[in-house]
């Protein structure tokens, strides 16, 4: 069994600060602007969710922050070090699971984690202890000796996340860490991320699963077209939304609902985004008519739709870098 590791002191201030970060791929008329003047501040010891459609610029931002990609302009600091001028200091304290990364097929799960830690410079007992710990935490013990080439895509992804979390880096970048995972595996990754947060590590998470972002993130930024459209805690974002309530109602005609708010259709009923008063009035009217109705705060998905005007699973063509989501 792994030894328990000493807990680190709670950090203060921002782990990551971005000022006007822009990225343009290519030159001339065919160049593509993937990020445009992004300003962000990510508190130390928090889980920060970067959400947006495919091609919104999430991966580009993470790659710049993780020192993997040069920005075109702007400044980005991680733990007080500039990612361009002081990349080597930044790299000592970060770890990242790149989007679409895959483990070396000839390693088994145990070797994958252990050798990654050794590559980072850990001595053998420490690397072994952390490997044992993360194998248990992410329920990888049953496949510990299996070659990664024999694992499902979801299990490989889980092994990659385990490997990076075992680094116990101060800032961890997880780019779409649960893509392809089944619901149980997703929950295990969530639990590991929460544990990392309890150990006061900062996690920057990109995802297009809004439930995941909402469940894990202390703060969120919604990226669209390379720009931050909204930023804050899930509650703050909800408070800032123009129509913060969602009423699902049956037995009404669209024209009857339009005075209450914005109306969208679904399976024989309607969804109405409304202010609190209008939402209550509509619910009361529906109950008086004996119609089926439900009322609640908008979900992050609803907020996304209100802000961007398109659902999150619709791609943003050509706004991101080569091969990036």
């Amino acid at each position: 069994m792994a030894q328990s590791l000493p807990s680190r002191p709670a950090p203060a201030g921002a782990a990551l600060v971005a000022h006007g970060v822009s990225k343009r791929y290519g030159h001339g008329p065919r160049s593509v602007e993937a990020l445009s003047g992004v300003n962000l501040s990510i508190p130390s010891g928090s889980v920060y969710g970067l959400i947006g459609r495919n091609g919104a610029g999430k991966t580009t931002f993470v790659r710049i922050a993780a020192t993997q990609l040069q920005p075109t302009s702007g400044q980005l600091e991680v733990l007080g070090h500039d990612v361009v001028r002081e990349a080597s200091q930044v790299r000592l304290r970060i770890a990242a699971v790149p989007q679409e990364s895959r483990p070396l097929y000839f390693l088994n799960v145990d070797e994958l984690i252990f050798l990654y830690l050794r590559m980072r410079g850990l001595d053998r007992p420490e690397a072994r202890a952390r490997t044992e710990r993360v194998l248990d935490e992410l329920s990888l013990r049953p496949v510990q000796r299996r070659l990664v080439s024999q694992l499902s895509g979801g299990m490989r992804r889980r092994a990659m996340v385990a490997m990076v979390l075992a680094s116990e880096a101060d800032v961890v970048f997880l780019d779409e860490p649960t893509t392809g995972l089944d619901p149980v595996a997703r929950r295990e990754v969530w639990a590991a991320i929460r544990r990392a947060k309890r150990e006061h590590r900062t996690i920057l998470l990109t995802t297009h699963y809004l439930d995941e972002a909402e469940a894990l993130s202390d703060r969120l930024a919604l990226l669209e077209g390379g720009q931050v459209k909204v930023e804050g805690s899930p509650t703050e974002i909800r408070d800032r939304v123009r129509l913060p309530y969602r009423v699902t109602v049956f037995g009404f005609r669209r024209e009857e609902l339009e005075p209450y708010g914005e109306v969208g259709g679904f399976d024989g009923g309607f969804i109405v985004f409304a202010r609190e008063g209008a939402a209550r009035e509509l619910a009361a009217a529906a109950l008086a008519r004996g119609a089926r109705v439900s009322l609640g705060p908008v979900s992050l998905e609803d907020i996304f739709l209100q802000i961007v005007g398109r659902p999150i699973d619709e791609s943003s063509e050509g706004e991101d870098g080569p091969g990036e989501g």
């Binding site: 993780a66 993997q68 770890a95 790149p98 990364s101 895959r102 590559m119 980072r120």
Partner: peptide, 18 residues
């Protein structure tokens, strides 16, 4: 292969490995 397909280079860039 490690750079393009597996993204191993990206993984190691974001680490103390030089």
């Amino acid at each position: 292969h490690y750079r393009q397909d597996l993204k191993l280079q990206d993984l190691l860039v974001a680490s103390p490995v030089e």
